[in-house]
Amino acid sequence: MTTPYLWTPPAVPSLPIRGSDARLPINRIFCVGRNYHAHAVEMGRPVDKSAERPFYFTKSTQTLVESGATVPYPPGTSNYHYEMELVLVIGKPGFRVAAENAHELVYGYACGLDMTRRDLQLVARDKGRPWDLGKDIEQGSVCSEVVPMPGVVIESGAIALQVNGVTKQSSDVDKLIWNIREILADLSQFYHLEPGDLIYTGTPEGVGAVLPGDQIRGQVAGVGEVVLHIGAAE
């Protein structure tokens, strides 16, 4: 029997899978804040791993957009930033997972852009308010196809981003403050992780603003590439 919804519910957000005709349904989007030392410093908030634990924010699955899209320059900002990230894709349920068993949750990886209204984020941060207007942006979670790597923990690999062909970010995943195992072990203390959860693992230094007409292109070695075109403002 068909459920008589008042209006048609939105389609399930999903991503293509390399080498498959199937699509991967997305459950939730988690993001790790300030997870590269040099980026934490450029944001004016250095991280002392010995005294802190990771922190997270979430983005609605309705913000997800596939690589190659053209998206409008969003309203309410004059400082729209790119953040290039390795995206971890969960393939099995897990709760209170030990770091040594964290690989069991890994389905694969993707390349992602955590687009950010930096001006609004910083106002919220400095006033102690939530970051939603700065981070939870329509069409602001960009993701490439998912590359299946069941049980594989990526520990190193070049991560880079270019705007209009000019390199803006260049680092290595081995510079993550909290690595893949540590992120999974910590986040699973707070959430029952589920298949289809995405974890944007953090961005290296070199974040900056883009304008309408710009092309963003980012890569993670061994994973692939993500591309985004910035359209005119709405």
Score class of each variant (00 low, 15 high):
G157Y: 04
E83H: 00
Y56Q: 09
S60F: 10
R217H: 09
G213E: 01
S20V: 01
N101S: 14
R53E: 12
V153D: 09
F190A: 06
V12P: 00
L228Y: 07
P93H: 06
L120E: 13
L64C: 06
D48N: 14
L228C: 12
G231S: 09
G140K: 08
M43D: 01
M84V: 15
P72S: 12
T63H: 03
P148L: 11
T63I: 05
V147A: 08
E66H: 13
G91F: 06
G128Q: 05
I159W: 03
I159R: 02
D186Y: 04
A158T: 13
G213W: 01
A102M: 08
V166H: 06
M43F: 00
H229D: 13
A98E: 10
K127D: 10
Q62N: 11
R28S: 11
K92F: 01
P16Y: 05
P54V: 11
R23L: 07
T77Y: 00
Y107D: 07
N27D: 14
D126F: 13
Y36E: 02
N35C: 03
I17G: 01
D197F: 06
I183C: 09
D21S: 15
A221P: 02
D21R: 15
I216V: 13
G157V: 13
D172N: 11
I216Q: 11
M84E: 14
E234F: 12
I154G: 08
R28V: 08
D174G: 07
R217K: 11
L15M: 14
K168H: 05
R118M: 07
V32P: 03
V89T: 09
V173F: 02
L15K: 08
I90V: 15
A160T: 11
W7T: 15
S144P: 01
L64F: 02
A40Y: 02
Q169M: 05
V32A: 07
F55I: 13
K127Q: 13
R18C: 11
C31Y: 03
